[in-house]
Design a protein around this nucleic acid. Structure first.
Length: 209
DNA sequence: CGAAGAACCACTGTTACATCA
DNA sequence: ATTGATGTAACAGTGGTTCTT
């Protein structure tokens, strides 16, 4: 690592510590990388050469994965410190650009790929959590509206009962009280005059839902 | 200028492993 | 010591965007 690299890393580290690097947009971050003699670095970054270079560097640093007998990568948990710092970075910005990824990976002794995967998984977890919160919220709304709807239907029944029970109507006052709310299906129904109470399937109803 | 292909990135779903009760 | 549940690191597949030819 040359002096320019050290300068770049220390600048980025400072940004990470101060939370500056995650407040800027992607292109602005690129201009940060682009400072001074970093034009060549940016060009190589654009062409993907930088990643190859970093991959080689990654092999030199300690990582949280080991190989088992079959050569498969074994998953090891991130340390508390690594998780905390990743969380802090995520709080500032839930996506990272290449430079930030590189700086974080270097700082945490991880591969860039690990940092990238961590952010992907973290975003997925956040989204899942938010979906759950939204579901709970919508369910509460639904329950509240259902309750309100039921209340309004009951009011309607009462008003109809009053209307049919009022003087100068052609119907008898007792008929208004015939409207019922089925406790199981929550339908408002009016049994036919000759209908058996048990034969609820044929009653005239008002849908509540 | 538009089309095709490459490279990159983010997202989603899945798998495999670590940890805990 | 064993087992099932849970959390999560890692991966594969896919689609969108950007750049190059």
């Amino acid at each position: 690592m040359n002096d320019d690299d050290n300068h770049k890393t220390s600048t980025l580290d400072l940004n990470l510590q101060l939370g500056l690097g995650f407040h800027v947009e992607k292109n602005v971050s690129k201009s940060l990388v682009n400072s001074k003699n970093d034009l060549a670095f940016e060009l190589s970054l654009k062409r993907g050469y930088a990643d190859e270079q970093v991959e080689e560097e990654d092999e030199e640093i300690a990582i949280n994965t080991t190989n088992d007998r079959n050569g498969c990568t074994k998953k090891l948990r991130l340390t508390k410190e690594q998780s905390t710092m990743l969380e802090d970075a995520f709080k500032l910005h839930n996506t990272i650009n290449t430079a930030q990824k590189r700086a974080l990976a270097e700082k945490l002794n991880l591969k860039q790929r690990q940092v990238e995967v961590w952010f992907q998984n973290r975003r997925a977890r956040t989204k899942l959590k938010q979906t759950e919160v939204n579901c709970i919220f919508l369910k509460k709304c639904h329950d509240k509206l259902s309750e309100e709807n039921l209340k309004l239907k009951r009011e309607l029944v009462e008003l109809r009962a009053l209307k049919v029970g009022a003087p100068n109507t052609s119907q008898s006052s007792s008929k208004g009280a015939d409207w019922n709310i089925c406790s199981s299906c929550k339908k408002i129904w009016k049994p036919n005059e000759e209908e058996d109470v048990v034969r609820k399937s044929s009653h005239s109803t008002i849908e509540l839902d």
